[in-house]
Design a protein around this nucleic acid. Structure first.
Length: 370
DNA sequence: CGGGTTTGACCAGCGC
DNA sequence: GCGCTGGTCAAACCCG
């Protein structure tokens, strides 16, 4: 009912000015990522996923990975590839980039373990670091390639926009100071009770977005969330929901929206870091555990089942709970994966309505030509 | 009754 | 300056 209302409202809000704005957004993305310079010719990065017997894999889309190093991501071989899509610097205006925009940088991580490994080995550096846009085997999976706006030019790396990146780094510095919560609360109260200082951009924590294919909007990631807002999304019939971690002092926020192009795809964006362990730690929880500081400890040591899913079985039952691990100048997103007993992780996940197929960015509107 | 959700209003930032 | 949009607040409401 409510959604229908919103549908009506939103569907009529497509104007030329919006399209112009979208164009500008696209320009921004291109500026930041310079993805047109990423190397498609570097065949070492283009490792096709190993053949599997699962039909899902046949439909597995290809995506791009955004790496900060020249190290290639692990080979692809997961059915349900998580697709962390972007890490956003701190000063990005929230409204200037929609979720789908954030997802423009798709990352290609073949397996959860691989993702962990890859992030552990390739921490994303906040600033002054060369970023390599790593193409995945799009050519091997043509059905999805058009979505990806494949870079066509053969330069292998490009530096990230320093302005946006340094702002992101600033945000991390704030995170590390421990004044974060205070700052956030202060900011919150200022927002409506007191006039906000002008000429002082609100600093945002780095964000991490990914898409999942799921029927449920709010995925169980082990943390408790309280919804504090819902907004209609421009050019989308689906509303965007805003969640905050309910743990005292934890300022982590999460936004959830459905893709306008594919209603089965849920786009989740995490912002901030949990300062507490997950209150819901299922038996046999594996993967990355937050330490007492709340910063995830990047690890990829998993107990791998002896099945054909050997390399990615736990990916299926993963609930990505994002932790941004920080060090002096770098951060790397990590995920907590909560194992659930399963013979067939994929089917179990479907049954439980948890994170399911992690899907590509098909929902993105085709990028505008430059 | 406590905690979570809904929803209208407000604010900030940006583009025109 | 105005309009648009994203983000947030908080009162009202719902539910166990």
């Amino acid at each position: 009912m409510n959604e229908m209302k919103e549908n009506n409202n939103i569907s009529s809000v497509c104007t030329n000015s919006m399209e112009k704005r979208e164009e500008k957004k696209e320009l921004t993305r291109t500026t930041i990522l310079k993805r047109e310079n990423f190397d498609m010719a570097n065949s070492s990065f283009i490792t096709p996923p190993p053949a599997t017997t699962t039909s899902d894999i046949d439909q597995m889309p290809s995506v791009y990975a955004l790496s900060t190093t020249a190290t290639p991501p692990p080979p692809l071989n997961s059915i349900f590839d998580m697709m962390p899509c972007d890490i956003i610097g701190g000063d990005q205006k929230a409204g200037s980039l929609g979720f789908i925009d954030l997802l423009d940088i798709n990352q290609d991580f073949g397996t959860a373990a691989s993702l962990f490994d890859w992030f552990a080995q390739n921490p994303i550096v906040g600033s002054q670091q060369q970023q390599t846009f790593v193409p995945s085997p799009a050519s091997t999976l043509p059905e999805t390639s058009e979505v990806l706006n494949n870079p066509a030019t053969p330069n292998s790396s490009a530096s990230i926009s320093s302005s946006s990146n340094e702002a992101g780094n600033d945000a991390f510095q704030q995170v590390k100071t421990g004044d974060q919560e205070e700052e956030q609360d202060h900011d919150k109260t200022k927002k409506q009770l007191k006039p906000k200082k002008k000429n002082q951009k609100r600093q945002r924590e780095p964000r991490f977005a990914f898409m999942t294919k799921s029927e449920v909007d709010h995925l169980d990631d082990g943390f408790r969330w309280r919804k504090y807002g819902q907004k209609a999304v421009k050019n989308s019939p689906y509303p965007r929901s805003y969640y905050r971690c309910t743990s005292a002092g934890c300022g982590v926020k999460k936004r959830v929206e459905r893709s306008s192009d594919d209603s089965s795809i849920v786009v989740t964006t995490y912002e901030g870091q949990h300062i507490h362990p997950s209150p819901i730690t299922p038996r046999g929880s594996i993967g990355i555990l937050t330490d007492s500081t709340g910063f995830g400890a990047a690890t990829s040591s998993f107990v791998i089942p002896q099945t054909q899913y050997q390399q990615h079985a736990y990916m299926y039952s993963s609930s990505p709970s994002l932790n941004i691990t920080t060090s002096n100048t770098s951060f790397s997103p990590t995920f907590s994966f909560h194992q659930r007993r399963s013979d067939s992780p994929a089917s179990l996940l479907r049954d439980h309505g948890l994170l399911q197929d992690i899907v590509p960015s098909q929902m993105r509107k085709e990028p505008k030509e430059e």
